[in-house]
């Protein structure tokens, strides 16, 4: 870990401004991802701006009938919120499938969205990684890639996005609200928050320098059956090999988002149109253009099989 300076931000705008001013600064929320990366010198911020005191820890109803989730709301609190459980069951289930109780107590909404890849080569500073050292190469290609992404990947990076929460939020069409260093605000549809790696895998989001997430807004509830199915090697406390989030309406229409298969929470609206044709048709569309490695090709089958089971479950539920 490199030595760093530290400040407690006094307002969102001041935090954004400070961050833009001081190159090498980072926001710290729960710290459950950032601190681990700093200890290994994968992240080397010279200045930390603590955003925990910004009163961004509330969940409020919006005039449109949705919910506005503060950026600092802890994963535990979000999952337990009665409105979330009633109207956005998918989100609650996705959150509870992630990490451990202790981590969820600390982890925040914004931090969860911005958590970084879990690629083991990214975590080892002696290995080649374009995400850590742009242009150095990608050790995972041709290496251990069983957990990696199969779609949306590039020759530069095949890391998957590890968040469960983000997959549910993608299915729920969440909007990410930010404050920029000049004090202005911006609303970013979650689909546009994360970038595909292309040849710049180190640039992971569309956030600008110093841009601070202040909230995530969920549109009015859409009803339907909410299922989040996370597939993993052990029963708990493991990242998804594949996860499938569905919201299925009584008429059979619905939404499908998947995790563990792409550099961002993955949803293809055109695939949802094929729900009446069943899991295979949806998967074909969803994972069109997939470029798996030998080690992770099973994910294509796994998504299809899991989706089929989830759709059957949705159909059989009262």
């Amino acid at each position: 870990m490199k030595a760093f300076t530290y400040e407690r931000a006094v307002s969102p705008a001041a935090a954004a401004q400070a961050a833009a001013h001081l190159p090498g600064s980072k926001f710290i929320a729960g710290g459950t991802n950032l601190l681990d990366l700093m200890k290994l010198q994968i992240e080397t911020p010279t200045h930390l701006i603590d955003v925990n005191g910004l009163a961004l820890d509330r969940i409020e109803a919006t005039p449109e009938g949705g919910l506005r989730i503060g950026a600092l709301v802890r994963n535990t609190d979000l999952a337990a919120d009665a409105r979330v459980r009633r109207d956005y069951g998918l989100l609650s289930r996705a959150l509870l499938s992630g990490a451990s109780g202790q981590l969820r107590n600390k982890a925040t909404t914004a931090g969860n969205l911005l958590q970084r890849a879990r690629c083991p080569y990214f975590y080892d500073t002696d290995q080649l990684c374009n995400k850590r050292h742009p242009g150095s190469g990608c050790a995972a290609l041709g290496g251990f890639s069983r957990q990696h992404a199969v779609v949306g990947v590039s020759d530069s990076c095949i890391a998957s996005h590890p968040s469960d929460m983000a997959v549910a939020m993608r299915a729920l069409d969440a909007i990410v609200e930010t404050v920029l260093p000049d004090g202005s605000t911006r609303s970013i549809p979650i689909a546009e928050l994360h970038r595909l790696p292309g040849d710049t895998p180190h640039i992971e989001t569309t956030l600008g320098a110093g841009e601070l997430i202040v909230a995530v807004t969920l549109p009015k509830p859409i009803g339907g059956k909410h299922i989040y199915r996370k597939v993993r090697d052990r029963a708990s406390y493991a990242f998804a090999l594949v996860s499938v989030a569905v919201i299925v309406q009584a008429d059979g229409s619905g939404r499908v988002a998947v995790g563990g298969v792409a550099p961002k929470p993955w949803r293809v609206e055109a695939a949802e149109a094929r729900l009446p044709e069943g899991a295979k048709a949806v998967t074909d569309e969803l994972l069109a253009g997939a470029a798996p490695t030998r080690e992770n090709a099973y994910k294509l089958t796994l998504v299809e099989r899991t989706l089929r089971a989830v759709l059957a479950e949705a159909g059989s539920q009262p």
Partner: peptide
Amino acid sequence: AGYEVPVHAD
């Protein structure tokens, strides 16, 4: 995180 051992739920 990468070398998984059983947890209680297993």
